Computed example of a mutant assay.
Amino acid sequence: MAHRAAHSRSSSGWGRQKQKPPPDPLEKPGYASKGDSALVEIQAQESYFRLIMDRYAQFCRDNSDNLQAAFTSLPRDPSEDATKNPPASLPQKQDPKKQAAQRTTLAAKELSVILVALRKLREAILATAAKTPVPFSQEVHIFCVRTALLAGHPPSYYPPLERLLTTLNTPAHPLGISALNEFLTYFIFDFACRQEDIVTAIRLRDRAEVKIGYQHEILDKALLALTHDDWISFWKTRDHADGYIRSLMDWAADNMQLRALKAIGKSYMTVDLEFLIESCTGRKDGCTWEELVQKHNLGWKRDNNKVTIRIRK
């Protein structure tokens, strides 16, 4: 009887190890470039894209109280592909003071999953370009660029942006003038701010004006500010831009801070801390003194709200 009872407990699942949760449907498909064929049919691509958009909508809902922080949760390093090694989730029980850090980590993990899924879908579309409808390819690439721009992740936005403008903008299926202007603007801003190639940015902008009558006031003001090291105009222009353009302009933020610090260092013996912060960030509360010191290795001395740059001899 004891043997049968033990067998009964085992058969009913007692003593068994917990079953692993089902695989994430976004993580299940592999990369087409590595031979995976899960997304080689248009129906599979469309279904997978709907899953991605649903997860994106859920991500926005889950982080609706501070969506900007959620989108900026990935490491902002142009040389690092954060989607390859997404941050691990933290333990559930946290000290209340660490809840914000936990939410940021979880947001980064989910955002990484979404960006990886978009990369898999783009690879599949590229592998099946001969049979995948161009309008669907355009839709995927547009969604990918916008999402990755908000995340500040060049490996996820620059390749689809370039492909959208060069390969997918076809005579048979041209991008509408509004979309063409939008993505040309992102393309030019990327050269100016992230790649620090202002010459190419200006050349692209002028070529677009000749070819399609392109005009963009915010871009023109930003290019002028970058050309003349005018950090005041740079910050004001950024304040009037939308979230996509602000994300691109932020790649030039550290350089503009450094230019402001150099100009202030040459012009003043002492400055108000508030003036210094506003000059370097465009806002009175844009960052802390400690952040400026660490980022730019400042040797200036602070005394309450005054900063001494050099002492009069």
Rank of each mutant, 00 (worst) to 15 (best):
3 H>W: 09
3 H>F: 11
5 A>I: 12
7 H>I: 04
10 S>G: 04
11 S>Y: 09
13 G>Q: 11
14 W>F: 14
16 R>E: 10
18 K>S: 12
29 P>F: 01
30 G>V: 07
32 A>G: 10
34 K>E: 15
35 G>F: 03
38 A>P: 03
39 L>D: 09
39 L>N: 03
40 V>D: 12
40 V>W: 07
41 E>P: 00
45 Q>P: 03
46 E>P: 04
48 Y>V: 08
59 F>I: 08
60 C>Q: 14
65 D>K: 11
71 F>Q: 00
72 T>S: 15
76 R>P: 04
82 A>E: 08
86 P>F: 04
90 L>F: 07
91 P>S: 10
91 P>G: 07
92 Q>L: 13
93 K>V: 12
96 P>G: 06
97 K>I: 11
97 K>A: 15
98 K>D: 15
100 A>Q: 15
101 A>P: 07
101 A>S: 13
104 T>A: 14
108 A>D: 06
111 L>G: 02
111 L>W: 01
127 A>M: 06
128 T>P: 03
136 F>V: 09
138 Q>P: 02
144 C>N: 11
145 V>F: 03
147 T>S: 06
147 T>Y: 06
152 G>M: 06
153 H>M: 00
155 P>L: 09
155 P>H: 07
156 S>D: 09
170 T>N: 05
173 H>E: 13
173 H>C: 10
177 I>Y: 03
177 I>G: 05
178 S>L: 10
183 F>W: 00
190 D>S: 03
195 Q>A: 13
201 A>M: 03
201 A>T: 02
204 L>G: 04
217 E>P: 02
220 D>R: 15
224 L>W: 08
226 L>H: 00
233 S>H: 05
243 G>E: 11
243 G>P: 01
245 I>E: 07
256 M>Y: 01
267 S>D: 12
268 Y>F: 14
271 V>R: 09
272 D>K: 14
277 I>Y: 01
280 C>N: 04
287 C>K: 12
288 T>V: 07
293 V>S: 08
296 H>G: 08
298 L>R: 00
302 R>W: 08
307 V>M: 06
311 I>L: 15
313 K>D: 06
313 K>H: 09
